[in-house]
């Protein structure tokens, strides 16, 4: 089952993600300049041997901003993956096991899924003020329904397994059953799903920052660097270009990791995952 292809994809994915994560973690040492320091004399500088990726409209070093921006973007996406994973996992578990509440919970999840996450984020930013926390809340709310659906599917499969049915028949306690048999069976699809959520959250955070409801300036995120560059797309395309490449590398890596995990853990999981 562990095809060569899967392992190679996994390796490529891991390399890409590790590259970006390590660069972000080491931003303090790697970044050649202060990412929020304006340098009025050096605005919209073409990439050269001092400013490797050029400078933006405030004369800030784009490379340094990408390194620090990746830190913020990664942190947000990681928290979103964990929070939506816990919330969605719990709702999915309840929904899949206690069939009585299933219909109601899933209707609420459908409603949330139909509600555009971007609008929720704009509204939250207006209420609470834009911050990393606001972005995390908006995206966690937006992605909880997906995880809940995947988890519910996995629980439904698990509870129909012979050994689980047998254990229930002999009167095993619910909590023990869930803990011993159902949760372990759901772990693999959960991990894979949250890897994808991680990837989607990176993209979504970029959209929110682009629209102007991300973490407030001057601290960079990958999306806000693109937003800063968009008014100067014609004269200085490098400002928006390189953070987009960083996002693409990261998301591609995460998607490859997700695919690799999925193929390695259980090929049948495709039926549950969409």
């Amino acid at each position: 089952m562990r095809s060569l292809l899967a392992r190679r994809n996994f390796a490529i994915g891991l390399t890409l993600v590790a590259l970006v994560v390590l660069a972000a973690l080491a931003a303090d040492w790697l970044a050649p300049f202060d990412p929020v320091k304006n340098n009025y004399r050096n605005r919209l500088g073409v990439p050269d041997d001092v400013f490797l990726l050029g400078t933006d409209r405030y004369g800030r070093d784009v490379l340094s901003r990408i390194l620090f921006g990746a830190q913020v973007s990664l942190r947000i996406a990681l928290i979103v993956a964990v929070v939506s994973g816990l919330a969605g996992g719990f709702i999915g578990l309840v929904s899949g096991w206690w069939r009585g509440v299933d219909v109601w919970l899933m209707r609420v999840m459908d409603g949330l899924m139909a509600f555009p996450g971007l609008l929720l984020a704009i509204a939250l930013a207006a209420t609470l003020g834009p911050s990393e926390g606001t972005v995390v809340i908006a995206l966690s709310v937006a992605y909880t329904p997906r995880t809940a659906r995947v988890m519910r599917g996995a629980v439904l499969v698990a509870r129909s397994q012979d050994y689980v049915e047998a254990a229930r028949a002999v009167g095993a306690r619910t909590m023990r059953l869930l803990y011993r048999h159902v949760l372990p069976a759901c772990a693999a699809p959960w991990v894979v799903q949250q890897t994808y959520v991680f990837a989607i959250a990176i993209l979504a955070e970029a959209v929110l920052s682009f629209v102007g409801v991300g973490p407030p300036p001057p601290r960079p995120t990958l999306g806000s660097i693109i937003a800063d560059g968009r008014d100067n797309m014609v004269e200085a395309p490098w400002i928006a270009l390189s953070p987009g490449v960083a996002i693409a590398m990261l998301v591609l890596g995460l998607n490859l990791l997700g695919d690799g995990l999925r193929d390695a853990l259980d090929p049948r999981m495709r039926r549950i995952m969409r």
Partner: peptide, 20 residues
Amino acid sequence: AQQLRAAGFNVKLNVMDWPT
């Protein structure tokens, strides 16, 4: 905000949209 911090103020910068 940057300048006031440099002068020793404890500045809280609240960036929000226009109606807010």
